[in-house]
Design a protein around this nucleic acid. Structure first.
Lengths: 199, 199
DNA sequence: TTATTTCGGAACTAATCGGTTCCGAAATAG
DNA sequence: CTATTTCGGAACCGATTAGTTCCGAAATAA
C-alpha cells in the first residue's frame, strides 16, 4: 500500500550519512541543529518530522555507522585467503579505510562517540558495548583458527589476543585525531602484527 | 613584595583540580560555566578574574594534568628495580591509577580531550602532541635498555615497541569510558606484557 | 476530486550559553 | 588612613540553543 501523500524528496540514508559526517567531525555537543541543517541540506521542520530530535538523529546515524563497520569486517574476513591475512585485512581496513579516512583527524565515529558520550548516555553505551561484542564474536574464531593452523602465535588465548587487538585498534583511531600521518598508524599496525603473526 | 590588596581566599591548584574533575567527567563542550561554578565553589566573577575565560581555564587544567602524568611516569620508572618492572609499573599505573580511577568511566583526561578537541583546537593539539612526545622520550630508553639486557623481547625496535605500547594505553583508557570492570583492563595489560616481556 | 503527506521557509518560544560589569564588604600593604 | 585587590553575589548582555508550530505549495493515493 505504498504511502499516502507527497513522497519524501530526500533520501533518508543519504541524509543520515551527511548528519553522521557532521557529528563525526565535531562531536555530538558541538554540533548544533543549525549545523545539521546545513550539512543535511534540509530545513529544521523536515529534520524533526523525519528523525525526531537531535538525540534520536544521532542514534540513527550511529546505528548506521556500526552496521557498516560490521559488514565491512565480515567481508574483509570472508574475502581473505587465510586467517593471517584476515587479521591483516581487518587492521588495514581500520587504518586506511573507514576509521582513518583520507579526510584526516576524524578517527572512528564509534570511538569518538564512546569517549564523548558512553559514560553518560545509556543508549550510546549499550550500542557500543553490543558493537564491541559483535566485533569480538567475528574476530575470536578467526584468531582461534589461525592459531590452530600455526598461522598466528598461540602465545595468548584467542579471546585474550582478540581483546588485545581490539584495544589496540581503539588506540590507533583515538590517536588519529591528533592528525598524525597515516604512515604512523601503518607502522604501529606492522609492529602489532609482528607480535601476533607466527614466524 | 608579596602582593597588594585582599589575598585570594581559595587555592588556585585546588580550584584547578575541581575544574579538571568537571571537564574530565563531561568533556569540554558539555561542561557549562555554571557547572564549573558549582564544581569549583566559586562565583563567576572570581573564576573570570582568576583564570580568564572557559577555554583558558580548560588549558590550565589540562596542563596541570599532563604535568602530573609525566611526573607519575618518571617516578614509576625510577622506582622500578629493572626495565621489565618499569614497563609493568607504568602500565599498572595507567590501568589502576590516575587514568582509570576508582571512579569509573572517566578514562584519561588527556585522551578524552584528544578525541573531543584535538582536531579543531590547535592549542589542545600541540599540548597533546608534546605530551606524547615527552612520554615517548621517557619510555624508549627504558625499552631499549630492557631489550639489551634481555628482559624485553627485541622483536621490534625500541621506538616501534614504545609507540605500540602507547597506542595500546590509549585504547585501554578510551575503552574505560564504557564502564567495563577494571579486571578487563588488567587482563588486557597482561596479554600485552606477555607479548613484550622476554620469556 | 478529496484526503493525506511532505515540502521549504519563516516565526516563535523558553532556556541556556559564555562573558561582562557593578556592588559593598573585607582584607591586605604601604 | 589610603590605595589596592579579592570576595560573594547579583544584574545584565547579546547570541545561540533545542525544539515547536504554522504556512501555502506541491505531490501522491484512493
Amino acid at each position: 500500500m505504498a504511502q499516502l501523500g507527497r513522497p519524501r524528496e530526500f533520501d533518508v540514508d543519504e541524509a543520515l550519512d551527511k548528519a553522521m559526517d557532521a557529528f563525526w567531525a565535531r562531536g555530538y555537543e558541538a554540533t548544533s541543529v543549525a549545523d545539521l541543517m546545513g550539512a543535511m541540506g534540509l530545513q529544521k521542520g523536515s529534520i524533526y518530522k523525519a528523525f525526531g530530535d537531535k538525540h534520536s538523529l544521532f542514534l540513527r546515524a550511529l546505528d548506521r555507522y556500526l552496521d557498516e563497520v560490521i559488514e565491512a569486517v565480515k567481508s574483509a574476513i570472508s574475502s581473505a585467503p587465510d586467517e593471517r591475512m584476515a587479521v591483516r585485512g581487518w587492521l588495514s581496513g581500520v587504518v586506511a579505510g573507514r576509521c582513518s579516512r583520507s579526510n584526516r583527524r576524524r578517527g572512528c565515529f564509534a570511538i569518538n562517540s564512546l569517549v564523548e558520550l558512553a559514560p553518560h548516555d545509556p543508549e550510546v553505551n549499550t550500542r557500543l558495548r553490543r558493537h564491541l561484542e559483535q566485533l569480538r564474536g567475528l574476530i575470536v574464531p578467526v584468531v582461534a583458527a589461525g592459531q590452530s593452523k600455526g598461522l598466528l602465535r598461540d602465545n595468548a588465548s584467542a579471546e585474550a589476543a582478540t581483546d588485545m587487538l581490539i584495544a589496540f585498534v581503539q588506540g590507533i583511531v583515538a590517536d588519529a585525531r591528533l592528525g598524525r600521518p597515516a604512515e604512523h598508524s601503518s607502522r604501529l599496525m606492522e609492529t602489532v602484527l609482528g607480535l601476533v603473526e607466527a614466524k
